[in-house]
Amino acid sequence: MSTTVTADIEVDVPVRVAYDQWTQFESFPHFMSGVESVTQVDDTTTHWVVSIAGVKREFDADVSDQVPDDHVAWRSTAAEVQHRGRVDFRPGSDGRTRIDLTIEWEPEGFIEKAGAALQLDDAQVKRDLHRFKEFIEDRNAPTGAWRGEVHGGQETTPGTGGTAGTTTGLGGGTAAPGSVNPPTSEGVAGSDPDLRA
């Protein structure tokens, strides 16, 4: 039985800043608990290494739908790790941004099923969103940007206004364009363009 978590937060930066930072997947370990690393494979594919309750998992996730300054949706590519999600960005008052996040996954094993039953995953997602808020508000600028557009899993507009591949201020590395990996009991997952927060 799948588990769905929804969470939202308002951050004190403009939509473009919040959105651009979310496209920098390799920065996720800085604010997402359980995420050990994210590697950008190409513009729409990322490789995740996560560790939850001592259980290490690796999987790939593809961006299924992305519109700059509006939303990013993703889904896992392997049958054995069932994840999908969507994050939406909405302008708030005084130049702030509301972030709405929905994550759906299939818990595996006793620890993950128990965590889902006790709603521990909900608490983790909310904590990680709060850490994202602190991260981006402290910087007040994204570490990079990828402005490509994706529909049906296919990139329709090349990324502009930044380089999918460079992060700044985080010790270098590549930036993961186009997707989000919200914190879950297993890390990031995939998404459906119709999955809304």
Rank of each mutant, 00 (worst) to 15 (best):
A73E: 05
A61Q: 14
P29I: 05
F110M: 10
S51T: 15
D88M: 05
V38A: 10
V125F: 07
P29L: 06
V63D: 01
K126A: 15
A114P: 00
E112A: 12
D65N: 06
A53D: 11
F59N: 06
R75K: 13
S64L: 09
L118P: 03
P29A: 04
A145R: 13
V41C: 03
V81N: 08
E106Y: 08
T143W: 09
R90E: 15
V150H: 00
Q124G: 11
E108V: 12
S27Q: 13
F59E: 02
Q24R: 07
V150E: 01
Q40R: 13
K113H: 11
Q40K: 10
A79G: 05
I111Y: 06
P68Q: 01
E58H: 04
V72W: 00
F28L: 12
L129S: 05
Q66Y: 10
D122T: 07
A114F: 07
A123C: 01
W22I: 11
Q82M: 09
P68E: 02
D20K: 00
R98G: 11
E149D: 03
T143A: 15
S51E: 15
A78D: 05
G148V: 04
E104S: 09
K113A: 10
F110P: 05
V41A: 07
W74H: 03
V55A: 13
V41R: 03
E155P: 00
R127W: 03
F132Y: 15
K56E: 15
L129F: 04
D20R: 00
D62M: 05
G54T: 04
P68M: 01
A116G: 12
T44E: 08
Q119E: 13
Q154C: 01
T77D: 07
A117R: 09
A79Y: 03
A73W: 03
A145S: 14
E36R: 06
H130V: 12
D100I: 02
D43A: 11
L101G: 04
Q24L: 10
A79P: 02
T156Q: 11
W22Y: 08
A116V: 12
Q24G: 08
P91W: 02
R86C: 10
V87Q: 13
I103E: 14
D121A: 09
D94Y: 10
I52M: 14
H30G: 01
E26Y: 01
A145Y: 13
Q24A: 13
V72E: 06
N140V: 02
R98M: 13
D65A: 12
H151P: 09
H151N: 11
S37W: 08
Q124R: 14
R90D: 12
T156M: 10
I111P: 00
W105C: 11
M32N: 14
V63Y: 00
V72D: 04
H47P: 02
T97S: 14
D42G: 04
